[in-house]
Simulated scan of single mutants.
Amino acid sequence: MRREPGALESAVVGVLSDQAPMTVEQVRAALGEELAYTTVMTALVRLTQKGLVERVRAGRAHRYSLVVAADELPAFQAALRMRRELDSRAGRADVLANFVAGLGPEDEAVLRQLLDDSASDDSRSH
């Protein structure tokens, strides 16, 4: 039976969100389905390549865990997409200008505060 695109990755994220770092076999067992080991491993590798999951060697196996808490994943994914977009463009200023131009007043205020906080943090560390 074929799944909807992204359904297995979403299920894997759901399993990892409630657990300590897990091996492929532990994730497969937690999914409670008749999935092949390689199918689950492929999903974990893809999530690692996307930057959402980290992999740490544990003996002969690897243990996988989310890089941020599950409730922070949507914001983290958006930030990764923005970084990729900025890195792929020569006109980074144009990308940022277009992004800022689309912000409403409340979001602008939040962005200003975040930039101010970041500048304060940078000045304290130097």
Rank of each mutant, 00 (worst) to 15 (best):
P5E: 12
E9N: 12
A11R: 11
V12E: 00
G14E: 09
L16A: 00
L16S: 02
S17D: 09
S17L: 01
D18R: 14
P21W: 00
M22T: 07
T23L: 08
T23R: 11
V24M: 08
V24R: 12
V27R: 05
R28Y: 05
A29R: 05
A29S: 13
A29W: 00
L31E: 09
G32S: 14
G32H: 08
G32C: 03
E34D: 15
E34C: 03
Y37S: 02
T39N: 09
T39E: 06
T39Y: 06
M41S: 10
T42R: 15
A43Q: 05
A43S: 15
L44H: 06
L44E: 03
V45C: 07
R46T: 15
L52G: 00
L52S: 02
R55M: 02
R55C: 07
R55F: 04
V56T: 06
A58T: 10
H62F: 15
R63N: 02
Y64C: 04
L66W: 08
V67M: 02
V68E: 02
A70T: 08
A70P: 00
L73G: 03
Q77E: 15
A79M: 07
R81Y: 04
R83K: 13
E85G: 00
L86F: 01
A90P: 15
A90K: 15
A90C: 09
G91Y: 11
G91V: 06
A93Y: 12
V100K: 02
A101W: 05
P105C: 02
E106I: 08
E108F: 05
E108P: 04
V110K: 14
L111A: 15
R112C: 05
Q113W: 10
L114Y: 07
L114K: 10
L114D: 12
L115A: 15
D116S: 05
D116A: 03
D117Y: 03
D117Q: 14
S118K: 09
A119S: 09
D121T: 12
D122R: 12
S123M: 10
S125P: 01
